[in-house]
Design a protein around this nucleic acid. Structure first.
Lengths: 115, 115
DNA sequence: TGCGTATATAAGAATATACTTATATAATGA
DNA sequence: TCATTATATAAGTATATTCTTATATACGCA
């Protein structure tokens, strides 16, 4: 049996709805370049920690990102084994690099996890 | 000056939010194969006419689709000159063909506009 | 053990979204 | 001209979304 290259419309819509928020979409683009922890996102987006955690939870609930603990920090990363990962990755690749935001954190000495 | 291939994250998020609804995403996929009028969509989705019109209005407001009148009917089509059309088209191409839905309409003698 | 830091979760409020019903507009055809 | 059909728009409602604030949990370290 040959796998269908196409995606279920309803599930694809669910993914796109999640990505259709500028904070989450930026998070995903950042994660497509580097793993990150929650406190870095709060710095980058200048948003409250609960707000950031709640966005990450939504992404995690559908399996688009995964988490792992490193000491006090929870490191988030794209889940490359998600069924729709190739689709999501292709999509993220059309967006501008967010490297500058991470570089800025480094200059401020606020970079934690990602190397 | 060479055009940047990447998209503004905020605008991209706006597009993805619109596509992140299964009705609108299906509509866009259908339009990527054939132009369609409102009454065909109401048949396909078994939704009220105002509900369909309101979805189409959102897509039109950001310029993803365009309309033209043919007699009583308003024909909707993808707007191929939209700045993000290549992005949207690529995305729609990953979704399964909706040809069957239109064929079914034809069998029922409810196909109007599209050839 | 107790404190500080990082994170998650819960509850509540403001706003956005997607329908509904009612009505308006435009074209067709008798 | 009038009735019918196709479509758009407005107003209202139910639900979803995205914050906020308050609190709980987990780890590291003195």
């Amino acid at each position: 049996m040959i796998a269908d290259q196409t995606l279920d419309i309803e599930r694809a819509a669910g993914i796109l709805k999640l990505l259709g928020d500028k904070t989450r979409l930026s998070m995903m683009r950042i994660l497509s370049e580097h793993d990150c922890c929650v406190c870095e996102f709060t710095e980058i987006f200048q948003m409250s920690q609960p707000a950031i955690s709640q966005h990450l939870r939504k992404l995690r609930d559908v399996g688009l990102v995964k988490e792992s603990r490193r000491g006090q920090w929870i490191i988030y990363a794209l889940n490359e084994s998600h069924e729709y990962y190739p689709f999501v990755k292709m999509l993220l690749n059309t967006l501008p690099s967010q490297e500058e935001k991470l570089k800025e954190l480094e200059r401020q000495g606020k970079r934690i996890s990602c190397e």
